[in-house]
Design a protein around this nucleic acid. Structure first.
Lengths: 203, 203, 203, 203
DNA sequence: GATTAACCGAGACGGTACGTCAAGTCTTCCT
DNA sequence: AGGAAGACTTGACGTACCGTCTCGGTTAATC
């Protein structure tokens, strides 16, 4: 006889109306007051929802936020992958410049930062954050680099993981610690230097 | 005209005894319970100190932690700079491997992560965190790279800031998001790829 | 249009269990430690209740105490009025002697003194204290004196309010300022002198 | 050699300047903010004095207030006693009307109420309050009544203590509990009724 | 169509920690 | 040595949210 001590609610009867209201409210609030002043009570009040309805479906405010944020990025052609014009440097610069622009929008930046931070403190959340938000993007980079490697544009022995991290890590670090401006010039320089390091060895 | 809106206590009469006890207690506690379960009340209790004594001298628990952490790194020969054996790759690998080891120690890792996270949410704190903990370390890298540039070991047009971020950014990103192992192999690969990208242009 | 600026909790959902526990705890504690060492926190702890549950329903510890004290005197046949045997002096002496005995009991005296004092400092509370605790008792005296006036036992022009205050005021003053013993002899003397003053004018 | 463990400061070196400033400040403040919002810190700040200087010489804020209040009533011809024109009723009414007027002045009423209340809660203070403020006044009443008794204007067996309390108790009770107006009519009625009760028995 | 079980809004509950205030003590420097 | 100043420990304040728990009221699937 199966015992399910942790009350598992019946997802079939879930109110879609409430779910949307909660996700919307949490995104709006995190932008208004910041992550550490975001409270479950405020989300519930704003969403016109009982607190229990949040606790029933999510384990923490970070999980709510993750769902709220993911909802935006899951539907569209986000899974399109990087462009592949044959010019690796140009393709990478294009995408990184677009990312710079994206991070300029507070509506995107605020919840994303909140999630990055929450993930840094909570390994469980971190895994989910990585899987659902980060990994798809990184995989696109990896695919593009693999294609370039096969075309002989970068060294055949290139570790694609490290290569991707060389492109995104400095960006992430500069963004999170606000230690420098996130500019197109910066990402262009990243691409140039990294690609120079990945160039096939001279004969 | 000097404005003193917030009651500024007289630092001359400050109790060194209490200050040390608070810094010690906060470091110990952040290791035991983690940052978001660290409370001012617990620090005060552990330090045998009134809460007000903490509020009098620090604006937040993050600021306490920053002082506590900084105290450890300020006195010693920490400001020594990087070794300079003439072999740039070897020197960088040595230092990054040492950093990997340092981040393996929870007594170091826990408060450092807490501060990185707190800084990510609070620009004010972020600035302090950068100035007092990060910048000195990065300057050491910059110095070593400048010396290499003068010796003609890397391209004369190299942007030292970007170069340093290429070395440290991926490390920081992997550490904070726990997206991969912090190993000597990883940092070695970083150094090799980045230095390849910085190599002087072939004649 | 009714305005309810201060969050008004829903009395229907109120926990009777908590209410009783709070009233009991406050009476017990005021007897143990005295009024000015009585704290909301201690009441909450003793009652096994969150502080907010007290703040939700009462504006101050004095208000709690007033409810606690009133609860004791509301239910019983306390509203019985004074005896009326036809012998005014005897009836008054009987009741005042009983009151003396009542004030001898610390379980009664301590909270009553606390309330008298709190009322002396807070007009709002004072009004409630008067209405709910004092006035009913005084009305009983007034009724008894009115009956005597109609029977021609005291002067027809007697101001009943003043007459009651002559009987109770000296008692109250002596009690509150501890300036003399509260004895049967004292209250008997009060009754005799006051009634002598109220006797119908000699023809 | 006698040991005085309780540090007894040397009254000879006491600063008269500070003493006056403290007494003045406490009277002013009790009028402005009321007794239970009166703090030692505020007194010290207003008086331009260190807190320790207050704690050195007084055991509590009530004691400070008692001294402050007593200082006003000690110097003048306050010890003059009641007038004795031969007309007892007139003399009593005159004095009680003057007392009514005195209690109309907040500068008098506020600290006096504070002291009465503090005394009600603290038997030690109560004794001092009685001895230094109340008793002298009551003695004056007693003296006047004794003179009247000797003149045969009131019954020879009259208990002077009870008689005085009949005159002052209702006044005190009405004042402290704010249960009625303090008017000349009220005190006149008191005098008339009480004196009627004290009239020598008809032969 | 009635029953019934779940979700839902609402919000009271026992708690924990907050940041503030004042108490009374201690220490330092000044007169 | 007293006094001005103010930092110290202590402890209570009243508030904000936590996560849990009832309480009617829908709402959907089952009888």
């Amino acid at each position: 006889m199966p015992r399910t001590p942790a009350r598992t609610p019946d997802a079939g009867r879930r109110s879609e109306r409430s779910r949307r209201a909660i996700l919307d409210a949490s995104l709006a609030l995190v932008g208004e007051v910041g992550y550490h002043r975001l409270t479950i009570e405020a989300i519930a009040a704003r969403a016109g929802v009982g607190k229990q309805t949040i606790y029933r479906w999510w384990p923490s405010k970070a999980a709510v936020l993750l769902d709220a944020f993911t909802a935006r990025t899951e539907d569209p052609e986000y899974a399109a992958g990087l462009p592949d014009t044959g010019d690796l440097a140009a393709d990478l610069k294009l995408v990184l410049r677009a990312t710079v622009d994206e991070f300029d929008d507070p509506a995107f930046e605020a919840p994303y930062r909140a999630l990055a931070v929450a993930g840094a403190l909570d390994p469980d959340l971190s895994r989910q954050f990585t899987e659902r938000l980060n990994e798809p993007g990184l995989a696109a980079y990896r695919d593009r680099l693999r294609s370039a490697r096969e075309a002989g544009q970068i060294a055949p022995g290139t570790d694609l993981d490290v290569a991707v991290e060389l492109l995104t890590g400095p960006f992430f670090a500069r963004w999170l610690s606000r230690s420098g401006g996130l500019t197109h010039a910066f990402t262009d320089a990243l691409v140039d230097t990294v690609l120079a390091g990945l160039r096939p060895r001279d004969s």
